[in-house]
Write a protein that binds this DNA or RNA. Sequence first.
DNA 1: CGCGGACAGTCCACAGTGGAATGTTGCTGC
DNA 2: GCAGCAACATTCCACTGTGGACTGTCCGCG
Lengths: 185, 185
Amino acid sequence: MNGRRASQDAQHGLNNTAASLLGFLHERPMTGWDLVAAAQQLMGDFWSITRSQVYRELSAMAASGLVEELERGKRDRRPYAITDAGRQAFAAWSAVVPAEEAVRFPLLLMLTLGRHVAREHLVAAVEHHRALHEERLAEYEDHVQGTGDPYAVATLNFGIHYERAVLAWFDDLPDEITTGGTPRE
Amino acid sequence: MNGRRASQDAQHGLNNTAASLLGFLHERPMTGWDLVAAAQQLMGDFWSITRSQVYRELSAMAASGLVEELERGKRDRRPYAITDAGRQAFAAWSAVVPAEEAVRFPLLLMLTLGRHVAREHLVAAVEHHRALHEERLAEYEDHVQGTGDPYAVATLNFGIHYERAVLAWFDDLPDEITTGGTPRE
DNA sequence: CGCGGACAGTCCACAGTGGAATGTTGCTGC
DNA sequence: GCAGCAACATTCCACTGTGGACTGTCCGCG
């Protein structure tokens, strides 16, 4: 009713964060803490939800009846269960084709502005990121072993394809960028 | 001075949007409008800056002396030039390794929650996105012809590797997801 | 002339991020 | 049995980023 900071009363439907929470709550009641952990666990690097956002959405959804608060547990632990209205809202959300992905890659920004950045910094940044992506690829390849759920495997596979692409791109980068090839302009 | 909505007075340095504006302003004075266009043109799908944000940052940076307003042009056109302080701030920004990229892919979210989504919606969403990525790949491959600047080429190449990876991932998706393979659970 | 479309900026609500602050509980070593 | 530390759990806040509505100006064209 009060309307502040709500996850949309009606009309446009849920935002993605709210929808993801409802999705997880289909399995069982969970607290904000659990939900953050679940999301991090399942979609890690290609989706993100933050504590602040989660608690915000949970109280908004409780206020508008999409979830209901169960009794408090140990350390102020506050589990929520999805309601029928919540299941409906989720179904409505799931019926519309999701938006395009957003990729924000600061390294690419730096590269685009590369003309105005000292070569050494460019090189350092590229090296750093290459190492990061090598690690992540290894991790994904590791995790995908021993994962049964086909939906989870699909996500992991996205990570693997993605990291390989990034690595291949690094290898394609011209020498002018990755080493002290031509000096400046 | 007033401090509201500033792009950081000191200490943490610039945010990425402010930094990108300063980067572009190294070339020549530009208006907010021009800057949005330039960013869209050069980094399109892998970086984004919005009008609101740009004008916000420009006035903040004007207030803190990183840019200066030149005289108004035709339709309230308000060009800004970078100052020495601005060049310094940019140099400081460029010396630190950029953060990791953030990928937010709502389709992946839907897939992860796939157990609770009607098959038909999953299929429709996947089809839709596959088509999108095919288009984008074609665009990038087109654009990369006739692009001279190696930094711009690097960005375009990222796009090409990325889109190919996404497409390959789509091809790897199991039948249970892409067609009405096994019915539900 | 007049009017439609590209140009240019403002404003606002919402969504998402990240860190500080606060308190609780369970465990481990003594 | 208790001191202290790590993990659990929530709250709050400032900042960053997104998208749409709204206003106005100027250019070209019929």
